[in-house]
Design a protein around this nucleic acid. Sequence first.
DNA 1: CCAATTAGTTACCATTTGGTCACTAATATA
DNA 2: TATATTAGTGACCAAATGGTAACTAATTGG
Lengths: 199, 199
Amino acid sequence: MTPAQVQRSVGRPREFDEDTALEAVMNVFWRKGYEATSLADLCACTGLHKGSLYRAFGDKHQLFLRALRHYAEVEFRGVVAAASRSDSPLANIKAAVRKICDDAGQDKGCLMINSLVELAPHDPEVKTALKSFGEQRLRAMTDLIGAARRCGEIRAELEPHKLARQLMMTLAGSAAMIKGFLSRKEVAETLDDLVDSWT
Amino acid sequence: MTPAQVQRSVGRPREFDEDTALEAVMNVFWRKGYEATSLADLCACTGLHKGSLYRAFGDKHQLFLRALRHYAEVEFRGVVAAASRSDSPLANIKAAVRKICDDAGQDKGCLMINSLVELAPHDPEVKTALKSFGEQRLRAMTDLIGAARRCGEIRAELEPHKLARQLMMTLAGSAAMIKGFLSRKEVAETLDDLVDSWT
DNA sequence: CCAATTAGTTACCATTTGGTCACTAATATA
DNA sequence: TATATTAGTGACCAAATGGTAACTAATTGG
């Protein structure tokens, strides 16, 4: 909660930590979606007044984009970390999938998928951001799968870029289904089945 | 556009067709989502006044539920029809998948998945409805896959209920991804790959 | 033809929405 | 210490929100 920003050389200093506020905002957008979240909600979760929010982040839409980028960064770092612990690429793939599944909570899903569904068709900025996050993840998955295939953990006749797309689509489906149709256990089983079918 | 309802025995007759209005409403909810759709939008797309909408369907939420049920019915009938044309269960599965994919348009996705993501965690009625629609589809898929397996079109060691869940999750992913991350062609390819991997 | 009933229309309503602005408070530099 | 600069506060705003009610217009059954 201590302001961790660089101190602006002049003027009154911030009384809140920008990252802490962003994290709070991100969680509300994650749980409620963009339209269903009001400025009042954002003030409540950060403890800030409208004026402060606007001064620090701009309007609701800009604030949402910052929260979305923050989510994508944190999430990606977490998954990469989870996928870097083993010497076996396949084990790393499974760890990444499990991490992504865990991040979705009981019914929170994934902020990127939530936003893709709610906003992408009508919001070019959100769509562009999500495309770039998605491509980053698709590349990382393809690399990981390629490595697993090279060391014989995945059948040689399977094409990494196809498997990566398959996995991404199934993960997107997980994020949707966990919001009310399947339990986390069922989702996790299905994801395991998919990866196991590659060996 | 001609009123097709049963004539109420007494009172002034409807000047609009309930199903036509419902179809229009459904399309707006489908494209814009629940929160982003205003009563003004619903009046505009139906040509009706608020009062008439309230009298005929109740409030926004009840109207949405009617539209959602209407969507589920129409969509299911369409898919079942598409999956009943061939003698080969596998061909029927592929036809069903193609139909579902086509229904999603360029970036409209699926109203059920849209609603699952936007509303299910906070709206028990929507969640319950979607669960029942989903289970209906899961049963149908399992049956279809079981039939294909019995006649040797799908490998015997694969379990129909697992494949059905796999397919459902991938279809959910399709509906999300098509909203801005993947093209319909990429989605269709990925779905084909999945089903082909079962033979 | 009259009463009951249902539908369409309009004006209206309180609340909430995202957003702004004038004012005060705190800090760094000169 | 004065000034410039930035931050926090609370009042304020127009517009849009979902929803209602009073009134008029068609119908059917008695």
